[in-house]
């Protein structure tokens, strides 16, 4: 491995890297919390407020079915949004950081 001489601390403290990891972490954890909270709300609502689940929305299909379906849509939505965001911002920033590491400018 040739990277043994790399000054990892310097990279970790470089403004580019700090920006990358701050933006990524905020994005990832907040959406993770949104996704999981909504799941636990679904479970609790099914157990504690079944009357909401009973409300018929379209024909015989009730809120409960739509809430479950919504969880799937939310999952896909988060996935698509993350893919978009990562392709647009994170990957570009990552490449810049790697460029700095390879160019040795980070020191």
């Amino acid at each position: 491995m040739t990277q043994e001489q790399t000054d990892w601390a310097a990279i970790a403290n470089s403004p580019k890297f700090i920006e990358l990891h701050r933006r990524k972490t905020t994005f990832l954890f907040s959406w993770w919390v949104v996704g999981s909270l909504s799941y636990f709300i679904l479970l609790l609502a099914a157990a504690c407020t079944p009357e909401i689940f009973r409300v018929k929305l379209v024909g015989n299909i009730n809120c409960g079915y739509f809430f479950c379906l919504f969880q799937f849509l939310l999952g896909w939505g988060i996935a698509m949004f993350y893919a978009y965001k990562a392709n647009k911002d994170f990957d570009r920033l990552t490449e810049e950081v790697i460029g700095e590491i390879e160019g040795g400018i980070s020191l």
Binding site: W32, L42, L43, F72
Partner: peptide, 21 residues
Amino acid sequence: GIDGFLYAVGPMVSFITILLI
């Protein structure tokens, strides 16, 4: 009935963690 579908949401939620973290 629908409890089975409610049950199936769990395995999907797993992937939010896998994807993001």
